[in-house]
């Protein structure tokens, strides 16, 4: 088997007295896609930040095999960005090229052409010259991805990239990521609450709730009992073929049961895990 691109060995992260991740051992292989699933506060963002080098392990180590830090692209969950910042979408994408250029040298024609190519790949070409603050939420998300891609990453980290997006936008987003992964031979790690991502996209699933449990086949994890342990709440699987299309919080659904998303057509399980 080939060397893992990223390897966690006994990694623990503490923020003061709070343990975010404890004794994590896992491996991420090249050109694979991994979904991080788990409750809020479970450590998904910490996991991504460890890989990105933004957080240092309190114990253990994270090692990389033939992967330079500059070849990691990161799209954070909530970017602390002032969208009134006086830059165009293309300017932001070009920022992804800055580390490659080094000091003094400004982006030249080749860099701009490459950035425009990426804008084209992610569907931003028409709005590339517009100030970034005038773009829609979905377009800003694509700008963030395009910026990450501009540094020609081998590893792309996405932190809850579709939070707040509607079903159609989520579908489009994951299709785009799938396409980019195949085309650019990317390794992708994606933190998400969106269970649609698993059947459609990823090769591996990592359940993150203080610790990390890897599942090499996504369908292995579709057990309601498993999810109840992971999320700490009763859940009911809404089936769509072999794997659940989404999970519903039973307590919330009793108050106002949400309708299944349009066009599902799948059967709904009557069982409740326990």
């Amino acid at each position: 088997m080939s060397e893992p691109l990223v390897k966690f060995e006994g990694v623990t992260v503490k923020y003061g007295d709070v343990t975010a991740l404890s004794n994590v051992n896992c491996e991420i292989f090249k050109a694979t896609s991994t979904a991080l699933l788990g409750p809020n506060g479970g450590g998904k963002t910490t996991f991504l930040k460890l890989v990105a080098g933004l957080v240092k392990p309190t114990g253990g180590k994270v090692s990389y095999h033939k992967l330079k830090r500059s070849r990691i692209g990161y799209v954070p969950q909530e970017s602390d960005v002032d969208w009134q910042f006086p830059v165009t979408a293309l300017d932001v994408v070009l920022m992804g090229r800055y580390p490659v250029l080094g000091l003094v040298r400004w982006p030249g024609k080749k860099d701009k052409a490459a950035a425009l190519d990426i804008c084209s790949e992610v569907g931003l070409l028409k709005v590339a010259s517009r100030p970034v603050g005038t773009l829609s939420g979905g377009q800003k998300q694509r700008v963030a991805i395009a910026r990450a891609l501009a540094g020609r990453p081998e590893l792309l980290l996405l932190d809850e990239p579709t939070s707040g997006a509607d079903v159609k936008a989520k579908d489009q987003f994951y299709s785009l990521i799938s396409y980019l992964k195949e085309r650019l031979l990317l390794t992708v790690i994606i933190a998400s609450h969106d269970l649609q991502v698993v059947p459609k996209f990823v090769d591996d699933v990592a359940c993150v709730a203080g610790g990390v449990h890897m599942h090499s086949c996504p369908s292995d994890i579709w057990d309601e009992g498993h999810f109840q342990r992971l999320y700490g709440t009763e859940v009911e699987a809404v089936l769509h073929g072999k794997v659940p299309h989404r999970m519903v919080d039973v307590h919330r659904s009793e108050r106002g049961k949400p309708e299944p998303a349009a066009g599902h057509g799948g059967k709904k399980s009557s069982k409740k895990g326990g």
């Binding site: 830090r69 500059s70 960005v81 910042f85 920022m95 580390p99 250029l101 400004w106």
Partner: peptide, 22 residues
Amino acid sequence: LLFFKELLASSFDAELARVSGI
């Protein structure tokens, strides 16, 4: 002038600048 583009990128998003090695 020497660090202009790096200052611009880190002013826009400090965390992303850090990840990309700035």
